Simulated assay, not measured.
Amino acid sequence: MDVFSSATDLLRDRRPERPVLALRPHAASRAAAWFLANFPGRVLYAAKANDARQVTDALVEAGVTAFDVASLVEIERVAGIEGAELYFMNPVKSRGAIARAYREFGVRRFAFDTADELDKVLEETDGAGDLTLFLRIACPNTHSLIPLEGKFGASQEDAPALLLKARQRAKRLGITFHVGSQAVVPAAFGEALRQVGQLIVSSGVLVDAIDIGGGFPARYPHSDPPALSSFMEEIVRAADELAVKHSCELLCEPGRALVAEAESVIVRVDARRGNALYINDGAFGTLFDAAYSGFRFPARLVTPDRQKTASPEAEFVLYGPTCDSSDYLPGPFVLPACVDEGDYLEIGQVGAYGRVLANRFNGFGEFDEVLLTDEPMLSMFDSSEDDAQAVWPARA
């Protein structure tokens, strides 16, 4: 894969016809190093967020060896990584996927949120005695930009009986939850952990692990969350209040926070109509969240022409290349007012869920790929952030 110092450097070399996915593995490596140094437990990468080999390799080289996987395809992709620990955390799995995960790929960690799903896991593993079982519980998603509640999670009323049943069959028992994607308030994790603490006390069932899920935020023009260190401080405080704090392993499943900065997309403007720019990637490509989740991504005009980049700014909306009118990105995207047909834009922070959501609607969806060595357009991991070590030690 070709390497360039920046998107501008790329355009000095070529005028790409297709959108270009610009990978910055060094950004993923830096994010992983921060989580490994600051999270008080085991860090799992949520493999669904980005499946680029260069990104995964960067995470592994930084020290990430555990993976939250949701399908056999994700299992097959990461199972070959030396020393990989796989956590099959999708609360609803097919019987065939459970059996293959257990027998062919050595998966021993499974999530469930109903008695039926627990029975399914036990039956398809022939009542194995080496399972770690995580009960997914429901928790409020009031502090996240993309709520994930409603589809999964045992209620507070059902959870005690499920914990007791799983405790009788599991080698290790855990509880897991998810506060929603792009959680912007540290208290979200503290509130959920206190809910877990109440459940443990009320059920009378001891657990060996608590997986606090993902939801850790990245930085966007519309969402400037507190420093990640404040999230860790909240987690440490809440975890320290748990009755099982001395015997319970803590885990997390970051996806967005690890990889959002690790990729951008370079697009061409194919038409301008007033303040609307028609570009060659969009809602059915890497920019799904900009169309359907209300995200604003950072954008900049990419050109060696300094006069163009120095012109006054204006707000634009974007349309993708398909014939679907929902292929619309309201932004607004702040760019030089002179931007026009034939210009190129770099749109940042698409490393989380961008490439994995892209499809081939209308025949679009093919990308070139390059490596860039410059810094992301926005970052949660700058030198001003407090990198103090967390104080609740990880446990094997």
Score class of each variant (00 low, 15 high):
Ser94Trp: 08
Gln182Ser: 03
Leu36His: 08
Pro91Ser: 03
Ser144Met: 04
Pro25Asp: 10
Val391Ala: 15
Glu234Val: 08
Asp113Gly: 01
His246Leu: 10
Asn90Leu: 11
Phe297Val: 11
Met380Pro: 01
Thr176Lys: 06
Pro40Leu: 01
Val207Glu: 14
Arg395Leu: 00
Val302Phe: 04
Gly214Met: 02
Gly320Tyr: 02
Ala47Leu: 07
Ala84Ile: 12
Val107Ile: 08
Ser326Cys: 10
Ala396Gly: 14
Ala22Lys: 11
Ile212Asp: 10
Gln182Met: 07
Leu301Pro: 12
Ser29Phe: 12
Met380Val: 00
Tyr220Cys: 15
Pro91Lys: 10
Lys165Gly: 09
Asp382Thr: 09
Phe110Tyr: 10
Gly190Thr: 15
Thr309Leu: 00
Ala358Asp: 01
Ile146Ala: 09
Gly83Asn: 02
Gly150Leu: 13
Ile137Asn: 01
Pro321Ala: 06
Asp281Ile: 08
Ala27Trp: 07
Glu263Gly: 09
Phe361Pro: 03
Ala28Asp: 15
Leu258Glu: 12
Thr142Lys: 00
Arg53Gly: 09
Leu335Phe: 06
Lys120Trp: 12
Arg18Leu: 14
Gly174Arg: 02
Ala58His: 09
Val207Ile: 01
Leu329His: 01
Gly354Ser: 02
Asn141Asp: 14
Pro16Asn: 09
Leu371Met: 02
Glu263Met: 12
Asp68Ile: 02
Phe361Trp: 11
Glu76Cys: 05
Leu335Lys: 05
Gly41Tyr: 04
Ser325Ile: 14
Ala290Glu: 13
Cys252Pro: 01
Ile266Lys: 09
Val185Met: 11
Thr114Tyr: 13
Glu249Val: 03
Gln307Gly: 11
Val92Ile: 09
Arg256His: 03
Tyr45His: 15
Pro376Ile: 12
Cys248Lys: 06
Ala7Trp: 02
Leu357Lys: 06
Ala192Lys: 07
Lys48Thr: 05
Ala31Glu: 00
Glu191Arg: 10
Tyr353Val: 08
Ala33Tyr: 15
Glu233Tyr: 10
Leu345Gln: 03
Ala170Arg: 04
Ala33Ile: 12
Ala290Asp: 07
Asp382Cys: 03
Ser384Ile: 07
Gln389Lys: 10
Arg300Pro: 03
Ala99Gln: 05
Ala84Gln: 13
Asp119Cys: 02
Gly83Asp: 07
Gly213Glu: 02
Phe88Pro: 02
Glu82Asp: 11
Ala310Arg: 15
Gln198Lys: 13
Arg15Gly: 07
Ala101Phe: 08
Met232Val: 08
His143Asp: 02
Val185Gln: 13
Tyr102Leu: 00
Glu375Leu: 11
Leu122Pro: 00
Leu44Tyr: 12
Ser6Val: 01
Arg77Tyr: 06
Ser383Pro: 00
